[in-house]
């Protein structure tokens, strides 16, 4: 049976009742699991295990809260070691820097332990900083990235959790043959990949072709659509987070990600899902409202597309 979840990264609930409404939206749209994203501090109370514990008492308390809202559990947690967080002293870390390895492994362990305690199964991690920061320019950088994530993957495996590296369209792994080199340098038993359909499409990559090429390493899937590829490689220009991801670059994109069947979408979502089915993919399929100004509306529309066009059953 396929496993479906919904990423709640487009919402920003703070108070408990706002968390409750968000979860009920996801539940009412037919999704039984959620994917959380890392954050920092009191404004992102679901962004770190410590804050979840402060808000809900314990992993078990959080599970109880989810159940009250019709949610069965947490599928996965997205972790970016480069994110500035007060809990990490506002120090951005890079797996390409061997000096950051221990700290990354320790922080990843927090998310891993939380998932293990709560019955979740995948740590989704941003493997490197963005290309414009040139994290892989130094000789030996790929090796350092590989050792870091293998260490995270080994810890996760011992806790019954899977590591999935998430390549976004700003990633340094998008450039040259960096991704192949990293995959060659890592143990497939420890390091898997998360395939994000829209991130790949913005990177001018066909998700189906990508999946066929890397099928053995894909252990997690995130599904959304986009209307615009970064065909002029603006991801490599300085401050791409600000100028491209948020500012839209020379394309003028107000938002990069859209509903699954958006008009002019570059991702053939139904075709991609058919490919997953045909190959027996059994990992999570996480749908997103990312970048939507109306996460609930997008969740409703995505639900309709999956149920009535693709033929997916409600969770």
């Amino acid at each position: 049976m396929n496993r479906w979840g919904y990423a709640v990264n487009a919402w920003a609930p703070v108070r408990r009742e706002h968390q409750e409404r968000m979860l009920k939206v996801v539940s009412a749209c037919g999704f039984g699991h959620i994917e959380l994203s890392c954050g920092s501090g009191r404004w992102e109370p679901l962004g770190r295990p410590e804050w979840i514990a402060r808000n809900h008492g314990s992993p078990a308390g959080f599970l109880g809260f989810l159940a009250e809202c019709g949610i069965d559990g947490v599928s996965s947690f997205y972790f970016d070691p480069g994110l500035l967080t007060e809990e990490e002293g506002f120090i951005p870390r890079s797996a390409a820097d061997p000096g950051d390895r221990d700290a990354i492994v320790a922080t990843a362990a927090l998310f891993t332990d939380f998932l293990a305690d709560i019955g979740g199964s995948v740590v989704v991690a941003r493997p490197t900083p963005s290309q414009w920061q040139q994290p892989l320019a130094r000789p030996g950088a790929i090796g350092a990235v590989a050792r870091c994530w293998e260490a995270v993957g080994a810890y996760a495996r011992d806790r019954g959790v899977t590591l999935a590296l998430h390549v976004d369209f700003l990633s340094a792994l998008r450039a040259d043959d960096n991704l192949d080199r990293l995959l060659d340098a890592t143990d497939p038993a420890l390091v898997g990949m998360a395939l994000d359909t829209a991130e790949l499409a913005v990177a001018a990559l066909d998700p189906v072709v990508f999946y066929r090429q890397y099928r053995e390493r894909v252990v997690h899937v995130q599904i959304k659509n986009t209307r615009q590829a970064d065909s002029r490689d603006e991801y490599a220009l300085p401050h791409a987070e600000l100028n491209l991801l948020r500012g839209g670059g020379s394309y003028g994109e107000q938002r990069w990600f859209h509903d699954l069947d958006t008009a002019g979408g570059l991702v053939d979502v139904a075709g991609f899902l058919a490919e997953l089915d045909a190959t027996g993919y059994d990992g999570w399929r996480i749908v997103e409202s990312d970048h939507s100004p109306h996460p609930a509306e997008t969740a409703m529309h995505n639900s309709w597309f999956l149920r009535h066009v693709v033929g997916v059953k409600r969770s």
């Binding site: 409404r21 939206v25 009412a28 109306h294 509306e297």
Partner: peptide, 16 residues
């Protein structure tokens, strides 16, 4: 308020 969110909350109440 937000119609989509309210619709989902109401439907959740129906379902559960």
């Amino acid at each position: 308020g937000n119609y989509a969110e309210s619709a989902c909350v109401a439907k959740w109440y129906i379902d559960h």
